[in-house]
Design a protein around this nucleic acid. Structure first.
Lengths: 340, 340
DNA sequence: CTTCCGTTGCGAACCGGTTCGACTCTAACC
DNA sequence: GGTTAGAGTCGAACCGGTTCGCAACGGAAG
């Protein structure tokens, strides 16, 4: 493999001159620059990443910590990962994918060894064990998901409170008076998946304010369990005219459940989900939904992270906590409730 | 951040001694070893990955090239990625995730710059553009998927020919005489997804040998298109008593389609798919299927790759092409055909 | 004709590890 | 008692880049 020394020799200049010619950090005559560039082409020179990292303390790699837990719907995670990965590449960074079960040890390993310039955390829990480690790391961090303590990191998340209100208001406006919300499994909440009750509490508040009834249940993250959960809900609450789904697995299972019961949306039941458009297309979900915008959140997180890495943000500039405003994508699955 | 120099100083020894004490590559007195280890703990020393990579020419990182194409079902890809990632970690390697649309440039970038010790390629096409680059790279490569030319790389794949025969034989033995095979979209085949016709050709041969009729169609990779494809097939071939599904999206769409038509497996129609058990659980697919074993394939690829990286395989030892024998997971979706 | 300055290139040091050769010291052997 | 083997440690070189300080050079200004 050619080194910069080989390039310099081929171009008849010193190593430092070759380096400057390539980086443009000092003035170099046109003639020398051309000779160096020719040598690079001819030798097929590519800088050694390790050597460069050592010299510059920059690896041009971002660590992506994603956990694939039993009780979360893996295909939904993938979209966040791709949002992060694509944006990182656009900005010149590669992605070190860390899917270790033990996120804390892994995080310490990659930050202490200086393998990465920054960290993106997915599946952030209310009080995430990885956060203290991230705060004490030398590299900046960006989260997708809202923890209790946002200090020292940049945070991006969907405004789940607003999402909850939006769902309730939408059905209320159409005339619904008794609706049900299907959330994630208890496990997810116990583990600190705060977004679940953030949406749920806001929905409950909105329902109270509007004077309508909102039943809440948690659904499993797997089929066929989640199908049973949905059926049980519909059996137990025959008066329900609208369904709010904050659970990807439940959304994916719903078409079959409704079909089995001979129900059609929106004529028999109005449905509003909370998932991405990409998700809806992949699983052909015909329900209107709050766009969860995983690509956008991933993009925002990486953008801000790179700004910090590259020092465009003063180190003492306060960290941001930014919410994406939820938007309802209308797929025609809601309407006025059937006559009681 | 503490360097090995700091450790050495704290332990009162030279840098080289500290290094040897930690690596164990030379004899070190128990006393010195203890002092060095204490210093490491006290200073929280972690070796700098870039420096180590520079010195040893080993990064302990494996590049994972995965493409997320419009016409492939993303959730299925994820399982291969996780198989690779988990095995790599077990063996002490991290994963550099490369999902660039332009796989060739990305591959050249990470190999030339020596960011990785080895490469795993997913979505391997019949004549994959990335292969020539991989062959000329200094690092070894392992593929999940079978290209036309396997030279210079280790190859792992499901035995799709055997899978095709197995599917046909299984239904033939139960008494079926007219069955249909739903494959991937034309696009996938055109792009070189050889596994599609490897399975299909073997299935056709087996059908001919057994004297039964096999209709073949390609299904879309998205819903609702793939649902239409399935309906069109069932409309056009009313005599079909068995369905073979080599298309994840079609498998995921099938429950709804069958339900809409008032059909039940296996009483009205026998169904055999080709997907992983994990996939079946995630989407609650009730069909017997050929296990596609993504985790096992990922694991095999990484194991062999690491053996090559670590020189346990002589450089001139021939590369392997290894097929996983398909196994039918019985989920009770096949039976004797309904009376004609 | 000197002086000064901007341009351009070079040499050396440095980043933080690993590894080779050489040196010292002790114990064992003949 | 001298030789030798082996254990334990150190200094220096090296991996392949980047960057700082300095000097040579040429042209313009005085």
């Amino acid at each position: 493999m050619a080194t910069i020394g080989d390039v310099a020799q081929a171009a008849g200049v010193s190593r430092s001159t070759a380096s400057y010619a390539l980086s443009g950090k000092r003035a170099i005559s046109a003639d020398v620059r051309r000779r160096v560039e020719d040598a690079v082409r001819q030798l097929g020179y590519t800088p050694n990443a390790g050597a460069r990292a050592l010299a510059t303390s920059q690896t041009m790699v971002i660590g992506l910590l994603a956990q694939f837990l039993e009780d979360e719907f893996a295909p939904a995670m993938l979209q966040y990962m791709l949002g992060v990965s694509n944006t990182a590449r656009e900005l010149g960074y590669d992605i070190l994918l860390v899917s270790d079960a033990d996120g804390t040890r892994a995080l310490r390993r990659i930050t202490d060894s200086r393998m990465v310039d920054g960290i993106v955390l997915l599946n952030v829990a209310e009080r995430d064990e990885r956060l203290p480690i991230l705060r004490s790391a030398a590299q900046p961090g960006a989260l997708v998901g809202l923890p209790a303590d946002c200090s020292g990191v940049d945070v991006f998340d969907l405004d789940f409170e607003e999402a909850g209100r939006l769902m309730v208001d939408h059905l209320h406006r159409l005339g619904h008076r008794e609706v049900a919300l299907v959330s994630q499994p208890e496990h997810v909440i116990e583990r600190g998946g705060a977004y679940v009750w953030r949406l749920q509490n806001a929905a409950l508040e909105a329902a109270t304010a509007r004077g309508i009834t909102l039943h809440t249940v948690s659904g499993s993250s797997r089929q066929p369990d989640v199908g049973r959960d949905l059926n049980a809900l519909l059996d137990a609450r025959p008066g329900v005219t609208g369904l709010l789904i904050n659970n990807e697995a439940a959304a994916a299972a719903l078409p079959t459940v409704l079909h089995d019961r001979g129900l059609t949306a929106p004529s028999d039941l109005s449905v509003v989900g909370r998932y991405s458009d990409e998700f809806a297309r992949t699983f052909s979900l015909p329900y209107s939904s709050i766009e969860s915008a995983p690509d956008r959140l991933g993009r925002m997180a990486v953008r801000q992270l790179v700004r910090r890495i590259e020092g465009e943000v003063a180190a003492d500039e306060p960290h941001v906590v930014r919410f994406v405003t939820p938007e309802l994508v209308d797929r025609g699955s809601t309407g006025v409730p059937r006559a009681a």
